[in-house]
């Protein structure tokens, strides 16, 4: 609605302002004001043209809205990889593939779902379109969220179990709770994450490395922060936890952004 404290007329030449004409078209003005504005538009060629131009703009926006916009190739590649990853997860975790079966028989499928995390088919493919098959030891417990911690050789640390929907909130909680970088995982995993960070085009600093079971897959959550930015770019990758892995072995399966409140 029009702000009653704001003049609806331009005092220089007494034209209606554009907001008022737009409100008039949308029937948002009180009756008396609408009546006066309508009379003014009829009598004023300039305001009539503004009125016509707004009507035409409406038609132009509708026409523009019907046009597609080509998706950039890198975005398309990433989204294809996410979908392939979803397909592999579905097929590899339940053995039977129907969504209806999973929904109707969750108890029967749950143990298999957890067992299947032991061997995860990893679909990689951001840009390169490669498919890699990797056997992973299942390290995590599914009991809930745990803090990331350094693991020492021969000792298996519990790692958090997350869904992709939980990633942003969990990362925000961890990173905002600390003052510096939050780095977990084995030395090999940390080294892989650092190498992955160095391969990113926009030179962001490594702020988080967290081993996690994400959607049943042994993954590494990597948070990168640009200088002077409060935005953390978060990558969930697989393939970083094997000995000797480098950033080139990291297959991105999920990406999101987190805005830090304490920067």
């Amino acid at each position: 609605m029009t702000d009653p404290h704001r003049s609806q007329h331009n005092h220089v030449d007494n034209h209606l302002d554009v907001d008022t004409v737009a409100d008039l078209i949308e029937n948002l003005l009180p009756a008396g004001e609408a009546h006066r504005a309508r009379d003014h538009v009829k009598a004023c060629p300039d305001c009539q043209r503004t009125y016509d131009a707004l009507i035409q703009l409406n038609a132009d926006l509708a026409e523009e809205g019907r046009a597609d916009i080509p998706m950039p190739a890198d975005v398309a590649d990433h989204l294809d990889s996410v979908i392939r990853s979803e397909s592999v997860l579905r097929a590899s975790t339940v053995g039977v593939h129907s969504l209806a079966q999973i929904r109707e028989e969750p108890r029967r499928h749950l143990p298999r779902l957890l067992m299947a995390a032991a061997v995860v088919l990893v679909v990689g493919a951001v840009g390169a379109g490669i498919v890699v098959s990797t056997a992973n030891q299942r390290e995590g417990s599914s009991a809930g969220l745990q803090e990331p911690s350094d693991s020492t050789p021969g000792q298996t640390s519990p790692i958090p179990t997350l869904t992709t929907a939980q990633i942003a909130g969990e990362v925000q909680r961890l990173v905002e709770g600390g003052t510096g970088a939050v780095i977990g995982g084995s030395a090999a995993e940390r080294s892989c994450a650092a190498d992955f960070a160095s391969r990113q085009p926009d030179q962001r600093a490594l702020r988080l490395v967290m081993p996690a079971q994400v959607e049943g897959r042994r993954s590494t959550v990597i948070g990168l922060q640009a200088d002077a930015s409060r935005d953390l770019r978060v990558f969930v990758v697989t393939g970083c936890d094997t000995r000797g892995a480098t950033g080139a072995d990291a297959n991105v399966v999920y990406v999101t952004s987190v805005t830090l409140r304490n920067g």
Binding site: D68, V75, L79, I83, S87, R90
Partner: peptide, 22 residues
């Protein structure tokens, strides 16, 4: 896709990606 085909959903998305990107 619902019955388990691993490629069907990707095809749907490919068909409409430019519309959804817009």
């Amino acid at each position: 896709h619902v019955a388990g085909d691993p490629h069907a959903f990707g095809l749907i998305v490919q068909r409409h990606r430019d519309r959804l990107w817009a």
